[in-house]
Nucleic acid binder design. Structure first.
Lengths: 224, 224, 224, 224
DNA sequence: CATGAATGAGGGTTCATTCAT
DNA sequence: GATGAATGAACCCTCATTCAT
């Protein structure tokens, strides 16, 4: 029987995802399109091409779907971070680092479209209970580690605040970076990098990331 | 008798308006705490200390409550902008301007805690949805005018992008500035100012707003 | 106090009806216009120019209003019957009798517009409980007496059936006789008389009531 | 497996349709018993032996239930008319024709007990309301055609009036023909035929329909 | 395991009725 | 008595969840 399952998995993998993953993919798409609350279980089941009842063979309830989706996203994010936060990347100049960092995160969010919806849902209220708190905690920890690696002298309290703020800033611009015409999306990604670069490195007037738009106007003649 | 009725009405009218305001306040609190959708009319009524049916003596339906709340908020916001965007304030150095600007907007959002939730709520049906879109457009227009006054040389397209991005950044940090311990909230307000200051004036190393925390760590020895 | 009430009644009567009667009149109008169910107590109160609470000073509940209205109508109907069913009228030839009878009943229904609505409401279901059964019973008794006077040889069972059927026929055409252009209404009243005349006097080919239209076409050449 | 699904669907489809019919039957019964407005969805569901939510698997809302019921009734009525109004039946002597006509319509209304309630219901909102108006118009058209076939010399205006009046008369007696002890119902059906026969053929003293009771009393000695 | 009809608690809303003023 | 804001049960409908097949 175990062998049977193995074989089935082996056969299924090529022509698609496993049932569970199909459901999660459907859920992610719907979370992104209509939000967590409006993504009814029937809608998710239909999108996944299964019956409503089948959902509950894999997940005990709707929140568990979100939880599993968040977990899958977190796992993937883990892999992204493993790449991004390698010593070599961390050692890059900040503009280059941001290029890599932001591009990777935007790409990740394109692959997990529901991640943003869940994050924002939990921003407003707490429909998913602790599931998303976990998710956020994981991300915050990563950012914290990143900051520690980059700015070892920074006090931990401040580091945490900056991490939280940075996370929010990123989320704030992410929707603009995922929808709309390609040109606009690229411009927004540039602004994301600019915002974070300037937020992280306030005292330098140095080069922004390569594809960062020259967003600063000539400084007005403010005397300060 | 006519006089009697007059007096009674005089005493009643305020009571009716008071109730209306109580309901709106309750709604605002709940919008902020659980979001528009989860703020059930029964919940709002309970929070306002009235029965479910009483709501409908003042508002024809749930959406109308949100609408009235948004309208009251918008009216107040208008007044805030009238103060903030006076020629004298606009002429202030950017740090001082941001002090006034952000403090006023944060205070406004503290007074109208549900305003943010409504601004973000995507699941509101068309009539109110459109009203909120208008409202957003109004804010964007204000920001655009502000930028134009401050940086007349900036191309309008860029100005609009920056306005949109700034609006999003502000919204993203706002929840952090409204909840949690007082110390943390203040710290976040400082970060808000820092983020916008640096985003708006990237090429100056000048003084950040007065109460802005020294959020920049000593620049790491990045060569750029 | 009793004297006081007397005086008030005396003073009020000239410029309108008593409060109770005003409410009943309002109820009757609304019963006719929107039906018993849709005539909300608030609507009745508003139409009567009193507050919702005042209604309940005169009537214990909505059904009691209908009951009282029906009672008032019945009392008036009683008076109508007292006139109609006088020996002289009963002795009239049937066409003349029907002229008097139908015209009086149509006039009565014009004065008590809600009577029909209540009668029909109770035709469909029994929202008013026994109130309207009483009303119907009273009418049926009258019709029965009428038939007995006119056709003393008719068995009582048949008499009752004919009374019931006649009552229904009358009600069926009444709405048409009360609304629409004057010409149409008159035509309908004519048809009412024709229907009843022919139903009551099947074996005579004699004169229909004076204003009865010549509704019968030349008999087709049916051989029977 | 495909075969399996085929078979299962084959078994299921009827079940779904069965449920739909059960719900419609329950609705029809309740429409007849308490009227459209008082026939709550919970009541209909209970009568059909299902849960409130189940109704909505088959019908989008309460009005749709009435609509479907009316549609089913109309379809059946159409078939009834196709039979009744065949040239052979129309050519029958009036008493025989009325036998067929009334018996068929009464049988139809026994099979669709809610049809009458819907026809009379004035409180139904527009979409269904209009559908029912159409339906009434259809019936009136049928009656008009019937009269034209039978009495070609009759002016069209009078024909329409007689159609309308006849329709009302029929509806007025129908409840009596559907409820109560069997004997009474039969007697009422007899009266229906008598009423219409005499209304339609006033100048003939010929035979009434076969089972028509000898409802006319010996003519009183009225000289006209 | 899959199915999808069935469930029923809960949401927004109405309205007959009550009660503090 | 009069007022009208307040009440809350009940309506129509949705949707997360269950279960017979």
């Amino acid at each position: 029987m175990g062998e049977n399952r193995e074989r089935r998995r082996a056969r299924r993998q090529p022509r698609g995802l496993l049932r569970k993953d199909e459901i999660l993919a459907a859920a992610g798409t719907l979370f992104a399109e209509v939000g967590y609350d409006k993504a009814t279980t029937n809608l998710i089941a239909a999108q996944a091409g299964v019956s409503p009842g089948s959902l509950y063979q894999f997940f005990p309830n709707k929140e568990a779907i979100a939880h599993a989706y968040a977990a899958a996203a977190t796992a993937q994010l883990q892999r992204v971070y493993d790449t991004i936060l390698s010593p070599e990347v961390i050692a890059l100049p900040l503009p280059s680092f941001l290029d890599v960092f932001i591009d990777a995160l935007v790409a990740f969010n394109r692959a997990f479209p529901g991640y943003l919806a869940l994050s924002v849902a939990s921003t407003i209220s707490s429909p998913l209970g602790l599931a998303l708190a976990d998710l956020r905690r994981g991300i915050m920890g990563r950012l914290d580690a990143l900051f520690e690696a980059r700015w070892p002298a920074m006090p931990s309290k401040e580091r945490r605040l900056r991490g939280l703020v940075s996370y929010r800033l990123f989320l704030a611009l992410l929707p603009l970076a995922l929808e709309g015409p390609e040109d606009d999306r690229e411009a927004v990604v540039g602004e994301m990098k600019a915002v974070l670069f300037r937020y992280w490195e306030p005292s330098t007037g140095g080069e922004p990331p390569a594809d960062m738009p020259a967003s600063g106007p000539p400084a007005p003649s403010a005397p300060w």
